[in-house]
């Protein structure tokens, strides 16, 4: 479970997350959203050791000012501060791939990196794939091929597939299985996932 500090109120988890996210995700530098971050101090030199930091994350083409403790992972920052809950938390240990996002075009596991380490990077989450109302070809292919059941792994699978196609590792079903192996599906939709990735790869290259 995330251990980032939250205001001690009687709110439900959802409302707390929502209000924190709204306060912290404004386009202008956010007002300190919670008592825990009132003492915010951005480090001025590498020598300063910060307890709380004001950082800017660039997500899906938009800049967000957020105040985070260094221990907040990129995954928790996306979900709990920016309310971008499309990126899922499965294992929180790098083993399942549910949290896969693109950073500067490359797929990574957002549970294994700190938000403060990703200042200045261009982050793409599943929310950033569609072009207005037009879904990304990989999203279309997952729907067409029925490549999910519960959907828990799906946004991670899709992000990984986008990168896998871009890397050129879709030459055969075997190759797709190998290069999609960082994404586990508890519902075991692997056959349909492989078919969706192969479909999308053909389409993207057309």
């Amino acid at each position: 479970m995330p251990e980032s500090p939250r205001p001690a109120t009687t709110h439900t988890r959802r409302t707390v997350l929502k209000s924190t996210a709204v306060a912290a995700a404004g386009a202008t530098p956010a007002p300190a959203p919670a008592p825990a971050v009132a003492a915010a101090a951005a480090p001025t030199t590498a020598g300063d050791v910060a307890e709380v930091m004001e950082i800017t994350l660039s997500v899906n083409g938009r800049k967000h000012a957020v105040t985070v403790e260094p221990r907040v992972t990129l995954l928790d920052a996306l979900r709990e501060r920016l309310a971008l809950t499309g990126t899922k938390k499965g294992c929180d240990r790098g083993e399942c791939g549910a949290c896969t996002v693109l950073v500067d075009g490359e797929r990574i596991k957002s549970c294994l990196t700190l938000a403060v380490m990703r200042q200045g990077s261009a982050i793409t989450t599943v929310e950033g794939l569609a072009d207005g109302d037009r879904l990304h070809p990989v999203q279309e292919a997952f729907i067409r091929r029925d490549a999910f059941q519960c959907g828990g792994c799906t946004s991670g699978q899709i992000m990984s597939a986008v990168a896998c196609i871009r890397e050129g590792h879709t030459g055969s079903d075997e190759e797709i299985r190998q290069w999609m192996s960082g994404n586990i599906c508890r519902c075991a939709c692997y056959q349909n996932i492989v078919a969706a990735v192969a479909d999308a790869a053909r389409e993207v290259r057309r």
Binding site: E3, P43, R71, M117
Partner: peptide, 19 residues
Amino acid sequence: MRSFGYASARDSADAVRLA
């Protein structure tokens, strides 16, 4: 995770000095 401080090092000498 228990909390910790964070600093980004500029170069190798800086990293070693900080550590």
